[in-house]
Measured scan of single mutants.
Amino acid sequence: KVFVPPFKTKSHFHRVEQCVRNINLEENRQKQNIDGHGSDDSKNKINDNEIHQFNKNNSNQAVAVTFTKCEEEPLDLITSLQNARDIQDMRIKKKQRQRVFPQPGSLYLAKTSTLPRISLKAAVGGQVPSACSHKQLYTYGVSKHCIKINSKNAESFQFHTEDYFGKESLWTGKGIQLADGGWLIPSNDGKAGKEEFYRALCDTPGVDPKLISRIWVYNHYRWIIWKLAAMECAFPKEFANRCLSPERVLLQLKYRYDTEIDRSRRSAIKKIMERDDTAAKTLVLCVSDIISLSANISETSSNKTSSADTQKVAIIELTDGWYAVKAQLDPPLLAVLKNGRLTVGQKIILHGAELVGSPDACTPLEAPESLMLKISANSTRPARWYTKLGFFPDPRPFPLPLSSLFSDGGNVGCVDVIIQRAYPIQWMEKTSSGLYIFRNEREEEKEAAKYVEAQQKRLEALFTKIQEEFEEHEENTTKPYLPSRALTRQQVRALQDGAELYEAVKNAADPA
């Protein structure tokens, strides 16, 4: 009996079949050797039954030995992979106790070099992304696993290492050393996912494991997988089976570590959520998911006594290639979404967006559910497929024609109009009788001069009248001057009331 372990994989059965074929070849070789050395001598003659019994015993022994070898290899492979993971953990823990100096990766050096680079648009010959069927993509060489990738399942995607490095690299049990020196050690079933790439990135030279977390790596792994898979599906003739590979993924992860961690360069969404930049600038984002077409959003009224009003709005997920943020759509954008003119994977350019929800600054990976962008249809338009995601180089609003605006589409950043004729300025005056008088600039100047002159005359007449009244009042209130005199003690004692006392003090030479 042959024991088949439960962890036997498909590739292992192929190895067993190869072992059986080797056994058959060995039986034929032994039979030929016996036939060649046989003689007519009775002493050296061998019976056919004995030959059959001899071959049967040897074949059973060969099967036992061969199956033992074939079954020991998976056990040795699992042990070797576990040992490799333990050694990798030791290296990572050692790096956590040490000071790790930055070491730029090859992709970062290539992108920051001064050498001329070919743009993506030029690389594909100016073509637009194709909409091929699954059968056509498979014909071009795009794998079935790559075709099924979307923004939702990209984080759970796993590579089959045998498809990229062969069985020999897997059966060594030491892992695969990729670009920039990172070791990718697959799981026991030969797959490599987000956890394996997290360990590989931490093991890469120049990466400090204390500065990154699993959530950070898982997030970037998701967007990298989706981007590379979309590249192959959009341009299968040029990029089929060339973008989505373990080495390319680790290069992209190391580039993002060099950019965001070592160089402290943040993406647009991260700057906006951390309240270090405004969402009103011109942005280019990609639609990554349609969350809900009728979500209940509560809006607190300005009146504190009234309860919060709830309304149903559409919510989608937007990404700048590094992080994601939810976006709230207005009714015109909801209609565009339902008509199929706004789809997943499409790039949009927007201006004047507003970050609503929590007023506190937070990182994109720790954002609350209520935090989202509020965008309007009058400031949102489709962007070209090759436009770079993030802040647009020109932060000013983009012009829009009047015919493309919506009455309930929110604010308009800039309108593109043509002035056919400029009319002169006219002034309108409404009289006390209810009549309207229109004048041009010259007539208005004359009328203004007349008004100023009449106003000045009225002011002069009023001043003269007030002055005359004041002088008349002064004459009536002025009394004849009485010289001061000193009162004797008897006169002071003779004073009867306060009025006489006041007059005496007033007319005294020295009231003190």
Rank of each mutant, 00 (worst) to 15 (best):
T259M: 09
R117L: 10
P368L: 05
Y255H: 08
I269V: 11
S113F: 07
I225T: 10
D320N: 00
V207L: 04
V284A: 11
D320G: 00
E260K: 00
P186S: 08
P205Q: 08
S294N: 15
Y257D: 00
G345D: 00
K95T: 11
V249G: 03
A377D: 01
A367T: 09
T319K: 01
G206A: 06
P382L: 13
D320Y: 03
K95E: 06
Q426R: 15
D276Y: 09
S288Y: 04
Q88L: 07
K326N: 09
R248G: 14
E168V: 14
G390E: 02
A361V: 13
Y423C: 04
G345S: 00
R99H: 14
L373I: 12
D258H: 06
I261M: 09
C414F: 06
S379R: 15
R85S: 06
W385S: 02
S130C: 13
W385L: 02
E168K: 15
F165S: 07
A327T: 10
G410E: 06
R248S: 13
D86Y: 12
P209T: 07
A229V: 05
I418T: 08
G321W: 03
F239V: 05
L251R: 09
D262Y: 10
R256S: 01
A200T: 14
D416V: 03
G175E: 11
R275G: 14
N241H: 12
F391L: 08
Q88R: 08
F157S: 03
G105R: 02
W216C: 01
M231T: 08
C362G: 07
D86G: 13
L244Q: 04
P364S: 06
Y221N: 00
D416G: 04
P236A: 10
S288F: 02
S267W: 00
P236T: 08
A279V: 10
D320V: 01
Y221D: 00
L250P: 00
L253P: 03
D208A: 09
R384H: 10
L251V: 10
Y221H: 01
K281E: 06
T319I: 03
E274K: 06
G193E: 03
S379N: 14
D208H: 12
N241K: 12
K271N: 06
P246S: 04
D276G: 10
F159C: 04
V249E: 03
R117P: 08
P397S: 09
T114S: 11
L107P: 02
N378I: 01
V207E: 01
D330E: 07
H220R: 00
L389P: 02
S245I: 13
R384C: 05
E168G: 15
P395L: 10
P424A: 09
R242G: 08
L250H: 06
Y323C: 04
L201P: 00
G181D: 05
V344I: 03
T114A: 13
P397R: 04
N241S: 13
L178W: 05
G413D: 11
P236L: 05
G141S: 12
L342V: 07
Q158P: 03
L389R: 02
D309N: 14
L251P: 04
V287G: 02
I290K: 05
V207G: 03
G206D: 04
I348S: 01
L371P: 07
G409R: 05
N219H: 05
F239L: 08
F239C: 05
P209Q: 05
M231K: 07
D330G: 05
V249L: 06
A268S: 08
P332R: 12
G413C: 12
G206V: 02
G193V: 00
S407G: 11
V124A: 13
L371R: 11
E366Q: 10
M273T: 15
T112I: 11
G182R: 03
Y255C: 08
F159V: 02
Y198H: 07
L211P: 04
R99C: 14
R341G: 15
T114I: 10
T204P: 00
L115V: 15
G390R: 03
F239S: 02
V249A: 08
W216R: 04
L318H: 00
D262G: 13
G181C: 09
N241D: 09
S370C: 09
G105S: 06
S80N: 14
L285R: 00
L184F: 09
A327V: 04
V100D: 09
S106N: 08
V325I: 15
S404L: 06
T319A: 04
S151G: 10
R117Q: 11
R248T: 15
C362Y: 12
R222K: 09
G390V: 03
S213F: 04
D320A: 01
A200S: 10
I224F: 01
P129T: 06
G321V: 02
K254T: 01
K227Q: 01
V207A: 05
A229G: 08
S113C: 11
S302R: 13
K111T: 06
L350P: 01
V412I: 12
L250R: 03
D320H: 01
A314S: 12
E196G: 04
Q158R: 13
P364L: 07
A383P: 03
A229S: 10
L81H: 09
I118T: 10
P424S: 13
I224V: 08
A327P: 01
S432P: 14
R199T: 11
D203N: 07
I87T: 12
R85G: 05
G352V: 04
D208G: 04
D163Y: 11
S119F: 05
E247K: 11
G181R: 08
S267L: 00
L365H: 07
P397T: 05
R266S: 15
A353G: 14
A179T: 13
K237T: 13
L211R: 15
L228R: 03
G105V: 02
W322L: 04
T387S: 12
I272V: 08
A367D: 07
W385R: 02
K270N: 07
D277G: 07
E238G: 07
L285P: 01
E196K: 03
T319R: 02
W223R: 02
H220Y: 03
L244P: 01
L253Q: 00
L109F: 10
L184H: 02
L137M: 14
K430N: 06
V124I: 10
L283P: 00
S403L: 14
W216G: 01
R222I: 03
V284F: 03
R91Q: 05
V325A: 12
G105D: 02
P186H: 09
P382T: 11
V284D: 01
L333F: 07
G141R: 11
T259K: 11
R421T: 04
E354V: 13
Y323F: 04
E247V: 09
A240G: 14
I92T: 08
L244R: 03
A200P: 02
G141D: 12
P236H: 07
P397H: 05
P205A: 07
D416H: 04
I419F: 05
L228M: 10
C243S: 08
N241Y: 08
K237R: 14
P395S: 09
E247A: 10
L365P: 09
I224N: 03
S292L: 12
S106R: 15
L211H: 12
R381W: 04
A353T: 12
G193R: 04
C243W: 07
N219D: 04
L318R: 01
N241T: 12
A229T: 07
G340C: 08
P236R: 07
S301F: 13
F197C: 07
P129H: 09
R256G: 04
L244V: 11
D309V: 11
E247G: 10
W216S: 00
P364R: 00
R421G: 01
